[in-house]
Simulated assay, not measured.
Amino acid sequence: MLIKEQHTEFIKSTAKSLGFDYCGIAKAQQLDDDARRLESWLNKGFQGSMNYMNNYFDLRIDPSKLVPGAKSVITLLLNYYPAQQQNAEAPQVSKYAYGKDYHEVIKEKLKTFLHLIKDNIGDVHGRGFTDSAPVLERSWAQKSGLGWIGKNGNLITKNDGSFFFIATLITDLDLETDNPFIKDYCGSCTKCIDSCPTDAILPDKVIDGSKCISYFTIELKDLIIPGKMKGKFENKLFGCDVCQDVCPWNRFSKPITETAFTPLREILNFTKNDWEELTEESFKIIFKDSPLKRPKYSGIKRNLKFISSE
């Protein structure tokens, strides 16, 4: 038991040393309840054209399919709430995309984490993920005691709100587990539901992804955004933070300490005219390490044209 406690303490202290704000641990097991909810969500078509969501269903619900012999699921949170924000009149970019692409930042941290585990504990097998594999990150975060799933579908922490990236480290290391977060502190509040510009937030913490502004501005590959969305984007160029901005728990949000997420000067200062005059060559240079490269230059220009015509 002493060894198990030591290993757990090492995991928690290493997470802190790598800059993660939270670290929780859950027992690796099949997520049967989540499997039923996911199946229902997919059957209703809430994934829209994100067909990749239909893939690897068994991997999403069973961590041992990703890491044979998995015993522990470590969940890590990294704050991305910016100290500075855009001018409200400019085309709006979701806060998570102000700085460097979080996939790259967190991937390096997880790689270092695994190396440190092997160097200090031994022949441990594990894999790290951050929104890049079929892992139900928010479910594991709740099971590891970090927070609850809000009505807007986001993980909410009681002390710091919801502006966090979630990373998952699945390992065959036997660790002490944290108690799951049982209580739901949303109560009767419906601010996120009432404020969603496209009515994408449904009852029972179900999100219709095919209606979300983030879906249309980031994931949609079509050259044209459906006309039925006209007048609903409220100047959103890339992503949407409305359901988090109105959440009372985010009054506790604290500015980032991770320098990689320091906002790009262009994100903070670009006017509508600057975005309109942006060339593809300049886009590739300025946003080469940014999440904005996902919809590519053509997608950003499509979004700009759409919100300019509203």
Rank of each mutant, 00 (worst) to 15 (best):
D123G: 02
H125A: 11
H125I: 08
G126I: 00
G128H: 01
F129M: 02
D131A: 09
S132M: 00
S132W: 02
S132C: 09
S132I: 02
A133R: 10
A133G: 13
A133L: 08
A133V: 08
A133F: 03
P134A: 14
P134W: 00
V135N: 10
L136C: 04
L136R: 06
L136G: 05
R138M: 12
R138N: 12
R138C: 11
R138V: 13
R138F: 06
S139T: 14
S139L: 03
S139C: 09
S139I: 05
A141T: 08
A141S: 15
A141R: 12
A141F: 03
Q142E: 11
S144I: 05
G145F: 05
G145L: 09
L146T: 11
G147M: 10
G147R: 12
W148E: 07
I149D: 04
G150A: 14
G150Q: 12
G150I: 13
K151E: 13
K151R: 15
K151G: 10
N152P: 05
N152E: 01
N152W: 00
G153M: 12
G153W: 08
G153T: 13
G153A: 14
L155Y: 06
L155C: 08
I156P: 02
T157Y: 00
K158F: 11
K158C: 12
K158R: 13
K158S: 14
K158M: 14
K158E: 15
N159R: 12
N159G: 07
D160K: 09
D160Y: 00
G161M: 02
F164E: 00
I166K: 09
I166G: 07
A167G: 13
T168R: 08
L169G: 08
L169R: 10
L169E: 09
I170L: 05
I170P: 01
I170M: 02
T171D: 09
T171H: 07
D172T: 03
D172G: 00
L173F: 00
L173V: 01
L173D: 03
L173W: 01
D174L: 07
D174E: 11
L175C: 05
E176H: 10
D178W: 05
D178V: 02
D178T: 01
D178S: 07
N179C: 03
N179A: 14
N179D: 12
P180G: 07
P180D: 03
P180N: 03
F181L: 06
I182P: 04
I182G: 03
I182D: 09
K183E: 12
D184Q: 06
D184Y: 04
D184C: 08
Y185N: 14
C186S: 11
S188M: 09
C189A: 09
C189T: 08
T190D: 15
T190W: 02
T190A: 13
T190R: 15
T190H: 15
K191Q: 14
I193L: 14
D194C: 01
D194K: 14
S195W: 01
S195M: 07
S195V: 06
S195H: 07
C196N: 01
T198F: 02
A200K: 07
A200V: 08
I201Y: 06
P203K: 13
D204F: 15
D204L: 12
K205W: 04
K205S: 12
K205L: 06
